[in-house]
């Protein structure tokens, strides 16, 4: 049966589709498994009153982007250029985030 090229292709596609479906099942499984961990993290956030994930620890204004004042990137002098790599991954001003109150 597998002598036909199309049969060989279908076999490869079926294996890949099974792997893709397995990724959905795995995503569902991981969501259930990690649920307790996420809940525990949320509890820690509530207990310690945390505001930011630890994604960029290289500078204080990248460690807590929501708490840093909007000019911290330019604290060295007014024309200082941003030099931390994660500065390129964080928007210079978070448009819309502070528009109503500030």
């Amino acid at each position: 049966m597998l002598r036909r090229p199309s049969s060989r292709l279908f076999t490869i596609w079926i294996i890949a589709l099974v792997a893709m479906t397995a990724s959905f099942v795995d995503a569902w499984r991981l969501a259930r498994t990690n649920d307790a961990a996420i809940e525990r993290t949320a509890e820690l956030v509530e207990q310690l009153r945390l505001t930011d994930p630890v994604l960029f620890t290289e500078a204080r204004y990248t460690r807590h982007p929501t708490q840093a004042d909007l000019h911290s990137a330019f604290q060295s002098h007014p024309l200082a250029l941003e030099h931390f790599p994660s500065g390129t991954l964080i928007p210079p001003t978070i448009r819309g985030a502070y528009e109503r109150l500030d």
Partner: peptide, 9 residues
């Protein structure tokens, strides 16, 4: 498991 929020605390 809380490392995303607590790694450097």
């Amino acid at each position: 498991e809380t490392e995303l929020m607590s790694a450097d605390l």
